[in-house]
Amino acid sequence: MKIVHYVNQFFAGVGGEEKATVGPEVRQAPTGPGRKLASLLGDEHQIVATVFCGDDYAASNDSAAGEILELIRSTGAEMLVAGPAFTSGRYGIACGRVAAAAHKAGLLSLAAMHAENPGVAEAAPAPVVATGLTAREMAATLEKVALAVRKLASGESLTRDDGLVGTGARHNRLAGSNAASRAVDLALARLAGDRSATEIPMPDFGAVTPAGPISDPSQALVALLTEGGLVPMGNPGRLESARATKWLRYPLDELPALEEGTHISVHGGFSTVIANADPNRILPLDVARELRDEGAIGTIYAEYFTTTGNGTSVADGARYGVEWAAELRKQGVQAAILTST
């Protein structure tokens, strides 16, 4: 079977963080970890091309997955392998999105990353096999990936034994009795000693490696962010009051503080009367400026990012988080204060 391999700019040998903004490109040969994977797959399956893209570009452009998919299709491959991305968040998200897009386009697809990488949630319905934490475990990981490739290529589905991670898709259906009756049944079952009975498995939110500390806030570029639905009066970007489908950015420039009437919260999950009377209650610009003037903060980033955190799915929330982090990193921001409503 002809395989195309997706990697980020680092594993393609293009460069590190300074090359994270490069767009997608294709090479007609296995590259980086793809060479080892190719040798593990032997003659039966060939890696005919490598598609790579910078992490920032891939994780923070809505169009990136589509552009990468075009390149994947141009190679004529029948199967995509993305990663392994280990615990790298942006790379994992990119692998997840590319695998999902390729799967939907009819290619056999497989992504590889750590079980707690936020990209796992992006890959569905394409399968993801779990890897170790870092590239130090590359050799063992590639052997696992090679086994998964052979199994998928033979028409079989992966199982937990193959390292398959992520929950399957959950779908609505009608139960035989109403939720109240089922809740009473469940209470009696738990009283009788069944501690595992539940209709909802405990979710696994994954883990994010915290960024290192900044050495000196008085020299730092600091951003103010909120999920409190704060927008300029009139809501020019039409931010939703619930289940937001986007995040927006608005200038702070040299505004000394937010004022009643210049900014409002469109959040639908709480009464915004108190916030709108003084929007600094949502985004603490007034005191941040004071602290900047006194030298406790170096510079305040000239825009704020906003979305509405109300009925937002974890998948969307994680995506906004990754996009914010990528964008802030690109702008040289070292620390951010995000208010949560």
Partner: peptide, 25 residues
């Protein structure tokens, strides 16, 4: 509280700003 992550309407204006400042610090 949820509706005012960087404030507290139960406080007077000066106290509230001091509270907000403490949060940012």
């Amino acid at each position: 509280g949820i509706p005012y992550p960087a404030g507290d309407p139960a406080l007077g204006p000066d106290e509230e700003k001091a509270w907000r400042r403490l949060l940012v610090q």
